[in-house]
């Protein structure tokens, strides 16, 4: 139990995916204009990463290892993830139209969110078992959601500020992200 807690806190706060491992930067910079969309993007990512780390681990230990095909992990994982995202998209389209429209083009983009593939590969590299993989997936995606929601909150405020002309747009967002990364260094002492 203690190990699982350490994995979860470690991946959510100490080694935050976005701010210290630089995974999932495209949605982090692209969908962080409004808190509401950021939060629903975060929810979709939590959903996909949790299921993806479960299935990726199952496929790796159940199919690839017995057949000695470990070297195919990259190809297999990306296919598992792409299929899962497609499934989530179909599911949302049928049962939650408003969320489906809110997420718009970003839902299929989760496939190319490197955080999803990154978590699956990290789970294998750290030889986590099924439960540890899922916990690591949840921790990582919660960390992503925390970062993107904070970012969106700050960006909503930034819009009312007077920013030097050449810093407008991407640069000021990057500076904000840098400051957030420094703040997240504070968590390093937890474990």
């Amino acid at each position: 139990m203690k190990e699982l807690l350490i994995i979860a806190i470690g991946s959510a706060l100490v080694n935050n995916v976005v701010l210290s491992q630089f995974l999932g930067l495209c949605p982090f910079l692209g969908v962080s204009r409004r808190v509401k969309t950021a939060a629903s993007m975060g929810a979709a990512v939590i959903f996909v990463i949790t299921i993806a780390s479960f299935f990726a681990n199952l496929v790796y230990n159940g199919i690839l290892v017995p057949l000695h095909l470990e070297y195919l992990e990259t190809i297999v994982f990306i296919l598992v993830i792409a299929a899962l995202v497609q499934f989530v998209e179909m599911f949302l389209k049928k049962f939650s139209r408003s969320l489906y429209h809110a997420l718009g083009v970003y839902l299929p983009l989760i496939t190319t969110n490197c955080a999803v593939l990154g978590v699956a590969i990290l789970n294998v590299q750290n030889s986590y078992n099924l439960l540890e993989s899922v916990v690591n997936g949840i921790g990582t995606s919660v960390g992503f959601t925390i970062a993107i929601v904070i970012m969106a909150g700050i960006r909503e405020r930034i819009e009312y500020n007077d920013i030097p002309e050449s810093l407008q747009g991407t640069p000021i967002v990057l500076v904000t992200a840098g400051l957030m990364a420094i703040a997240f260094f504070g968590f390093a002492g937890i474990i």
């Binding site: 701010l19 210290s20 002309e165 050449s166 810093l167 991407t170 500076v175 840098g178 990364a181």
Partner: peptide, 17 residues
Amino acid sequence: LAPGAFFVLAGLVAIQN
């Protein structure tokens, strides 16, 4: 370290702007 990556890229994009 991680924050520096954001700062340097922000600087380079700002110069380009």
